[in-house]
Design a protein around this nucleic acid. Structure first.
Lengths: 177, 177
DNA sequence: GGAAGATTGTTGTTGACGACAACAATTGTT
DNA sequence: AACAATTGTTGTCGTCAACAACAATCTTCC
């Protein structure tokens, strides 16, 4: 979770900003006023993958945080626990590299998870610099529930963009997983 | 630079291992060690759209920032100028609502852009509370160059995930644009 | 075997960003 | 005219990525 953010309080009045009715446009459309209709013309951003991905990512993370709100787990915490659960004994360096987060950042994440007794740092015998990361017993049962809630979250995503679209998306971005 | 450290080199090497031959796994699979091979097992994160989207979004933004580095324009600044360029005279409130950013945040963004003489806040005649936003002459020519660089960035995205995949992605996420 | 270099976990700083809260000026509503 | 709502602004808080520096501990190489 590299989340960018948020504590999505409650999606108040602004549940969703509706885009415009789409006209087919070429990506090389030049900027020009588009105010003939009452709406704000933003076709200028239509061809930009990064913008759409960013907006979508914010939506997804907010839903994740809301759906896992009852257990107070954020996307990054979830990813850390998932990787440790699947690969017990990993070092902090290995986990950080795997998830693409700074090892400096992982320190705080683990501090929090260890405080909640979901994860344990065990001194490594081979390399006394590093810690072997493990889930606690509580961590394992907790992760099982987190996964159930995460699955529910994934269903929300499927509802939002369509089941097939979600699968296509996962396929397109599989290299980044 | 260090930015490229985010490049998914690990994911790449794992690409072939992913769908394990054997049993069909459900997304709520319990965690279990997957270390038989030398790689770190992360199949546990494979079915999560948010994670893939997040990693991809980071990659895209880093490429955007690098590609537009010579003109020192970040994605948010670009989106603000694009919207103003396409809809001159818009109020700050309207721009913020359109881009889904806080109007408080837009204040700083506009301060920066106005300082660089790319954007102007003009006092609105109708509503003396609000400002009508316009690009300066310099802003218009600058935006034209930004768009050329942004198009180059989009080509990088197409190279990364494939031309058709990029288009499919834009289509899937068109509601968020 | 020991010095030099690299790695691991840690602490701290910086800057971008989202969410909120409060405020003055202005507009709208009644 | 009184009261509510909107707009831009300022400021605070928390999350996150990117760096830099450091002590402790390997690893390498002579």
């Amino acid at each position: 979770m590299a989340r960018n953010s948020q504590a999505p309080r409650i999606a108040k009045s602004r549940a969703g900003i509706r885009p415009l009715p789409g006209r087919a446009r070429s990506e090389s459309d030049n900027a020009h006023s588009d105010l003939m209709n009452g709406e704000i013309g933003l076709d200028a951003l239509a061809g930009h993958a990064g913008y759409a991905v960013r907006r979508f990512q914010i939506w997804v993370f907010q839903d994740f945080i809301r759906t896992l709100g009852s257990v107070d787990i954020r996307p990054t915490q979830y990813s850390v626990m998932t990787v440790i659960g699947a690969n017990p004994g990993l070092s902090q360096m290995a986990v950080a590299k795997r998830l693409g987060i700074e090892r400096a950042r992982l320190v705080h994440l683990l501090d929090s998870l260890e405080q909640r007794e979901l994860v344990r740092r065990v001194k490594s015998a081979n390399d006394r610099r590093s810690h072997a990361l493990h889930l606690t017993a509580r961590g394992r049962t907790a992760l099982a529930q987190f996964k159930r809630l995460a699955a529910e979250h994934e269903r929300h995503v499927a509802e939002k963009i369509g089941k097939e679209n979600r699968e296509k998306l996962l396929q397109i971005l599989s290299d980044f997983t």
